[in-house]
Design a protein around this nucleic acid. Sequence first.
RNA 1: CGGGGUGUAGCUUAGUCUGGUAGAGCGCCUGGUUUGGGACCAGGAGGUCGAGAGUUCGAAUCUCUCCGCCCCGACCA
Length: 588
Amino acid sequence: MKYWSQFFIPTLKESPADAEIASHKLLVRAGLVRKLGGGLYTYMPFGLRALQKITQMCREEMDNAGAIELWMPHVHPAELWEQGPRWAAAREIMFRTDNAGAGKGRSKEPEFVLGPTHEEIITPLVKAEITSYRDLPKNFYQIATKFRNEIRPRYGLMRAREFVMMDSYSFDTTDDNAVTSYFKMKEAYEKFFKRVGVLSIAVEADTGVMGGSFSHEFMVPAEIGDDDIIYCEESGYAANREKASSGIVPKDLVDAAPVGAIEEFATPGVVTIAALEAAPYSVPGDKQFKTLVFIGDGKPFLVILRGSDELEEAKLGSLGFTLFRQATAEEIEPVLGAKPGSLGAVKGTIKDPSALAGVFADHAIRLVGNGTTGANKDGFHVRNVNVTRDLAITKFGDFRRVAAGEPCPKSGHPLKSRRGIEVGHIFKLGTKYSEKFGAVYTDDQKQSHSMVMGCYGIGISRTMQAVIEQSHDADGIIWPWNVAPFHVLICVLDPQLPEAADLAKKLGAAAEKAGADVLIDDRAERPGVKFKDADLIGIPLRITIGGKGLKEGIIEMKWRHQKEVVKVPLTEAESRITAGVTEAAAKA
RNA sequence: CGGGGUGUAGCUUAGUCUGGUAGAGCGCCUGGUUUGGGACCAGGAGGUCGAGAGUUCGAAUCUCUCCGCCCCGACCA
């Protein structure tokens, strides 16, 4: 039982100028956090209570799923990262120090990084400690502060430079077992988010810089989310837009028959899809081929899409390049023979085909048939281009961005889209890290194999804010029971009256006995201030004790998520509160 | 990193264009009146106007440099 006057909840009437979204404003107004700098926040006593409840539930669900908690350093020798498979990509977001050894008599100054995640730490550890199949599987986790030098911190705790994350790493003997471990985690995550009281949906996701074979993200639907979720209510299909595919290309597609030979024609000044769609050319976007040039690990490669489609750049990750980027006009011309706007992939028109690392085509271009594309000659295009006859495709793949309204790949119903906040992510990694670091085990046939890994993360601090984003109204936060910093708020309107103070203490003790965390507002404030603050900080159950009510022989009960104020006779107060607490806890 | 914006008291801000003693609301302190949805009256404290340089008799205001913060894009839990 805490007394407000002894505790510390600095509430604000006005929103801070730098807060844009509801949850960020409320975090600050309700006294949960204070900002130190961009993406850096102090968890105030009141906010820390919510964070710790989330942490504890996460710990319990991980333990229940058989994972084992440990604690790893957050200062890492950069060497380890250099040995790992993603130094080039990851160093961008890491806080680094290269003068940690300065003035200490070392000839070479070691470089250190602050850990953004721990694959590079856990894998060498497991390599050293586990060598036998008898010790597998294992899943290690920690709940700790992570550091990422975000290019743009945003929305309070949503994207911070320093944040609390649960990260977990599984090690298995075989691919099948790794899949089992993966789905055990998926189940643990679902239980966790349910306990937190936040609606989250698992969607298929891109593996990004993490690498690995498949992956799910846990998304909290919210308008302000950074991600697009593509989903289908009929089939249950749901995926991050970066990963989503659609059924726009029929499985039994037969390519259109060529209507004639390729024919070059002059298109002076035409360098966009739209310009070719216009008169006098009038070639619809979906009858054009769009040719994009990228540089992958130093070599150019082509991506071909329908003119009407957009590239989903994340999907190029499946091509296996460590680093890739768009090519510049200067890099393009010597290889293709023309500037952007007149590019194509028709056999024989590419100036230097041997320079290319590959020509990758989206499946949907097979819908084109007798299409038009650049001639690799400035100011010229070619028509009657057909995929199998005229293009030298290295590999087909899914590279286009899916739009809402396209058919679901499973049911064929129109796909929908909505925004979401990513609060958790699970990856089946495979052997990418274990091979690199030599994490092998010996099986019962004395054979040596790389361990099969998975890695899993939950943004604990981000989840706290996602809860607020999903559960608030115009007056303030509406905490779900299990994450509420306190469950019961006893507003004592006349704290100077001994009978009111005594009753608050007695009812608080009863609520505590029933399992609730209790806060008593004993401040010498006017009732209006107390009610406004009560709504703002969002404690689920409010009990009001006032001099007026005491004379009538009643107190009041009000749930934050309901409008009604219920008058309760003093004689029933204790039992009604106990019953309310018990019921709310059972439902949560 | 590219584009846009912004910086004045603990918080929200006016004043900047057109240079001339730095203002308000909230919050805070003192006294009084109030007392069931952010009360009222009287008094008070609190500012190197983000930092530095320059122009000027005089700079919050004009110029330059730097820094912080916010928004849009790429990245992420």
